[in-house]
Amino acid sequence: MLRFSQLNIGFTKGQRQDPKVLFTSGELSFQAGDFVALIGPNGSGKTTLFNTILDHQPLLSGNLFFNEKDWKTLSRKEKVKTVSFVPSKFNGVQHLSVKELIAMGRAPHANLLNQFSQKDHQVVAKVMEELDLTQFAEKDTLYLSDGERQIAMIGKALAQETRIIILDEPTAFLDYNNRRKVLKILQKVARKNKQLIFISSHDLELCFEYCNRVVGIDQKQKEMCDFFEPFHKEDIISKIF
């Protein structure tokens, strides 16, 4: 579904300097239903890769394909219906309820005046039920616990109904129980809805437990290494860290 072809990931400092390449992807392809953990040391370029896919940073070179269509040829509208994003930390907004937050995920599908169709309402209700958020529906997002808020943000991404969901360190600010809970939800979603899910994480043990694929960034060789189940922890750690 998503294919990296010799992507050069990095950034340009100023206009005259040469771009700094962090790593090259090689040839990698991901299928619907894959739950992929992106691992690597701090500064290795996990966030830069995500930013590149999300169009916040230009692609230095190489090609990114979605269903064999060049990513660059997709319009903004097509992209927001294809990929959704969950930041590692969302602080909540006063007076914004959980239900309203999840309904925001329908924005790319609703019309200019944001009038919801029957389907939009159904999707929001379904997501809330799936994530067990119905009891929090009218609760202010500012006053949720970190775990509840992270799950609500995942709900927003699910309501967006994109084929790809990217989560930047979704477990970074959560306690042990909530980490497991979030990853379990994502694993279930990937399998059931056949969505492609990327997370970046430093919780290696949990990634090995829940993800079906781990992609590491090898800083020395400046390349990406693909690992499949069953994961050999020692090998992966010695190669990446």
Partner: peptide, 15 residues
């Protein structure tokens, strides 16, 4: 306007 309250980045990813 309603989407902007999530911040510029989140709003842009919602179209």
């Amino acid at each position: 306007l309603n989407l902007l309250i999530l911040g510029d980045r989140n709003a842009s990813l919602l179209g």
